[in-house]
């Protein structure tokens, strides 16, 4: 009973959205070939939409993204390989169209930058820790030379605190 109701609701929802399909600009026959569609979506997810630059072609609904997805589809159907199609787009839109920028002389900083920063950070940390250890060691050595790790004034103050009556401590 419940599943029948769900099915009826789903059918109703589909019927309600049917006119929307007519307005969509995606070519309808593609859904018929899931293999082609899977390749389109895979390619579209590694390519950048140039209109909304932080989205992939797969995510974007810009007109150009729709056109380019149709272009991908047409080229896949024409039997071109993924590499050929990507070259086709790079020839027109440049490396920027690739969501994953290629490693080149102009992008070395982009790729290596984070690691350079990481190494610099670790180096800075190591240096700071070493300096701190050295300062501490020097202090310990100095105190040891004076025959004690605590100087006389501190010792006197600690003794005074310890000798205080218990009532004062509680307040």
């Amino acid at each position: 009973m419940r599943s029948a109701l769900a099915a009826a609701l789903a059918a109703l929802a589909l019927a309600a959205t049917a006119p929307l399909h007519a307005q969509m600009r995606e070519a309808p026959p593609l859904a018929k070939d899931p293999a082609v569609e899977a390749r389109v979506m895979h390619l579209a997810s590694v390519l950048r939409c140039l209109v909304c630059q932080n989205q992939t072609l797969a995510d974007s609904n810009a007109e150009l993204a729709v056109d380019l997805r149709n272009q991908l589809r047409a080229q896949i159907k024409a039997g071109r390989s993924d590499a050929q199609i990507i070259d086709y787009l790079v020839a027109r839109y440049g490396d920027f169209v690739l969501y994953r920028p290629p490693v080149k002389t102009t992008t070395v900083l982009l790729w290596a930058g984070p690691f350079v920063l990481l190494v610099a950070g670790l180096l800075g940390l190591a240096l700071t820790l070493r300096r701190r250890a050295r300062v501490q060691a020097a202090q310990t050595a100095q105190n040891a030379a004076h025959g004690s790790t605590v100087d006389a004034a501190s010792r006197a103050r600690a003794k005074a605190l310890l000798d205080e009556p218990d009532g004062a401590k509680g307040a």
Partner: peptide, 13 residues
């Protein structure tokens, strides 16, 4: 009309 030449010229804006 379809924007195909636009794609060839790398038009995006």
């Amino acid at each position: 009309a379809k924007g195909n030449i636009g794609i060839d010229y790398g038009v995006y804006g």
